[in-house]
């Protein structure tokens, strides 16, 4: 008897979830340490501005946020696969409740 193959939607959903988790982790590991090291307890005299933002806000928040928008665009447009989500249970069954098995 042959082993059933894994649902392709599950496989791609899991792959995408792992990539998204890594993107979140990268954003966390860059943003918070950068802001903590460059934006906490400084003297006002050392403050510089980039495009009107305090320097640490520009490089620690505005820049990574911009990168995340671009990454999200790529992810949604190119990386994530379209799949058939399958047929839904017939309406009557759905209306009366479902067993799941």
């Amino acid at each position: 008897m042959s082993q059933p193959t894994e649902d392709p939607v599950l496989r791609s959903a899991r792959r995408e979830a792992v990539v998204v988790f890594l993107i979140w982790l990268a954003a966390l590991l860059y943003t918070v340490p950068y802001c903590y090291l460059n934006g906490y307890n400084r003297s006002v005299e050392s403050l510089k501005f980039v495009w009107g933002f305090p320097d640490w806000v520009f490089w620690g928040i505005f820049a990574p946020w911009t990168v995340c928008v671009i990454v999200s665009l790529y992810f949604g447009h190119q990386f994530m696969k379209d799949e058939d989500l399958g047929e839904e249970l017939p309406e009557q069954e759905d209306e009366l409740g479902l067993g799941g098995g």
């Binding site: 899991r14 946020w65 989500l85 399958g86």
Partner: peptide, 29 residues
């Protein structure tokens, strides 16, 4: 800094569970 987690909220909110939830809800009705 407090709010900037929102930079990844769209991709995590839809990318982690979205496809699978949509599929499971159809499979089970």
């Amino acid at each position: 800094l407090w709010i900037c987690g929102y930079m990844v909220v769209p991709i995590t909110g839809f990318g982690i569970l979205g496809k699978r939830m949509a599929q499971l809800s159809r499979k089970t009705g």
